[in-house]
């Protein structure tokens, strides 16, 4: 769990940084969020997002770690991602935020890079694979209470695996998720 602890410390640091960065008009600009679904995969996915209101954009950077393999195996996946979001109207239902905040519908393009290493029960390395993921997403951010954000999203994703002694392999899928976070 050392990688997870490291990631938690990074997240706390990001949150502390975010708390010190606000726009001149006092509008919150930074959101730090978690993906609860990642816990089911024995992982932790943390994201920090910076709003750029002048361009109706925001940019998010994500870090993730998970140890999904069990039974007679063990694995570690480390990943990083970036996501560019275009906010359509910056208005949302059930939301209490100043006008112009990054809420409501958005469209996004995402890029992820991760590396997965597998070990057997004897802790012998069985190799590693690198995965490059891209996704086109649509989402909606609610802010129902203070800085809390609830952000469901869905979209099309394409992933390419390389390594492990196999040729590269690309596949598509329909993805969905839910992020919970806090805006500072």
């Amino acid at each position: 769990m050392k990688p997870a602890l490291t990631l938690a410390l990074v997240a706390a640091h990001l949150a502390a940084l975010a708390a010190t960065t606000r726009a001149d008009d006092g509008a919150a600009l930074t959101t730090v969020s978690l993906e609860p679904r990642a816990f089911a995969a024995h992982g932790l996915a943390v994201e920090a997002e910076r709003d750029v209101p002048a361009h109706r954009l925001s940019l998010a950077a994500a870090l993730a770690v998970r140890s999904t393999a069990g039974g007679d195996y063990d694995s570690t996946t480390l990943g990083a991602g970036v996501e560019l979001r275009y906010w359509l109207r910056r208005r949302a239902v059930w939301t209490h935020r100043p006008r112009g905040a990054a809420v409501g519908w958005y469209l996004a393009a995402r890029l992820d890079l991760s590396r997965t290493a597998l070990r057997d029960a004897m802790d012998t390395s069985l190799g590693a694979m690198t995965t490059l993921g891209t996704a086109a997403l649509v989402g909606y951010r609610f802010a129902p209470w203070r800085g809390l954000e609830v952000r469901p999203y869905a979209g099309l994703a394409v992933r390419t695996d390389t390594g492990g002694g196999l040729p590269a392999w690309t596949r598509g899928s329909l993805g969905y998720g839910l992020a919970l976070g806090w805006t500072f």
């Binding site: 995969a41 597998l118 995965t131 993921g133 993805g175």
Partner: peptide, 26 residues
Amino acid sequence: VGGASGREDLGVISIDPPEAWLALTD
């Protein structure tokens, strides 16, 4: 469960992820 994002991917079966390919080839 999606690679680095925590997203859930539909249509991905258990023999698809990198962990499965690494175990399978070994």
